[in-house]
């Protein structure tokens, strides 16, 4: 029997520390899957929101009814001659009604409301000189206001960024708690196996051999527990309602495509974390024992 084989056997496969590591690694991995999913989804949300709003803009024309057509023509001409504008379309009444229906309901008499005229722009990749465009519109069509959606995009991007930061902090906390539990379990395992340590010392075993015997046991339990927790977390994510083509925070929480490989990194990372934490603990405690 080799040293490696005997190293696997010298620590009895019993004790509460084994269950502590198994269950805590499982629970932490389960939570880590959700935190990871939140991080990935919030990043995706930020990208989607930005992409949806980034290359579009709106010109809103508020003018008396007798001037509205003239100002619309002036604005369209300004837009046509402005570099960076790919397309400009005046929204028809039905399109405007559809936009407002979501907020005001279908029965509202929209025809009676003094609605502004809306022109939807599609920008080229380079985009227009926004400040210059604003000044031209102010000079040539005083009732026209250029809206590049910055006031919508900024809070959305900030919210998504904070969600992502929150998810990453959660991952860090989960890692920290896991390490703390492993340290606790390692201490308990070493304390409850005093006879094993005494016997191994007696036969000339080095601290490294003794520490590894415990570390292997603890890190393998951390891996098994984390694998179980990760599998459960992934199944739970799959069970969430489908988001269809849109990614929303609640219905779209999860991974897509190759993103499902990401949580598979959790069990090996848990094992490495458990290895490092239990190794440091074991060496520290063994140094304190003659």
């Amino acid at each position: 029997m080799s040293a490696r084989e005997i190293s696997r056997l010298v620590v009895p496969n019993r004790g509460q520390s084994v269950w502590l590591v198994l269950l805590s690694a499982s629970a932490m991995a389960f939570l880590a899957v959700f935190a990871l999913a939140l991080s990935v989804t919030s990043a995706q949300l930020a990208r989607n929101w930005s992409a949806a709003l980034a290359q579009t803009a709106t010109v809103r024309i508020s003018a008396p009814p007798e001037e509205i057509e003239a100002q619309t023509a002036i604005v369209l001409e300004v837009l046509r001659t402005t570099p960076g504008i790919a397309e400009a379309n005046v929204m028809v009444a039905a399109e405007q009604a559809a936009l407002l229906e979501a907020w005001l309901g279908p029965d509202l008499p929209l025809d009676a409301l003094p609605l502004p005229r809306l022109i939807e722009l599609t920008e080229t990749e380079e985009g227009p000189d926004r400040q210059g465009l604003r000044l031209r519109l102010a000079a040539e069509a005083p009732g026209a206001v250029f809206d590049d959606h910055t006031r919508w995009r900024r809070p959305l991007a900030e919210a998504a960024g904070r969600l992502r930061a929150f998810a990453l902090v959660s991952l860090g906390l989960i890692g920290g708690v896991t390490a703390a539990i492993v340290v606790l379990a390692s201490s308990a395992a070493l304390a409850s196996n005093g006879q094993v340590i005494r016997v191994l010392r007696l036969v000339g075993a080095r601290d490294r051999f003794i520490a590894l015997a415990f570390v292997r046991r603890i890190s393998s339990r951390a891996f098994i527990g984390a694998a179980a927790g990760t599998a459960l977390g992934m199944l739970a994510l799959r069970a969430l309602p489908e988001a269809g083509g849109n990614v929303h925070l609640l219905s779209g929480l999860g991974f897509s495509g190759a993103g499902w490989l990401l949580p598979l990194a959790i069990p090996p990372l848990a094992m490495v974390l458990a290895w490092a934490a239990s190794m440091a603990t074991a060496f520290k405690l063994l140094r304190e024992v003659t």
Binding site: M1, S2, A3, E5, I6, S7, L9, V10, P12, N13, Q195, V196, V199, L200, V203, G204, A205, R206, F209
Partner: peptide, 18 residues
């Protein structure tokens, strides 16, 4: 080590030191 056999215990000074 009560969970190991007599021969595993007797062999420990060699196996535990590689």
């Amino acid at each position: 080590l009560d969970h190991l056999s007599v021969e595993q215990n007797v062999g420990l000074p060699l196996t535990a030191t590689g």
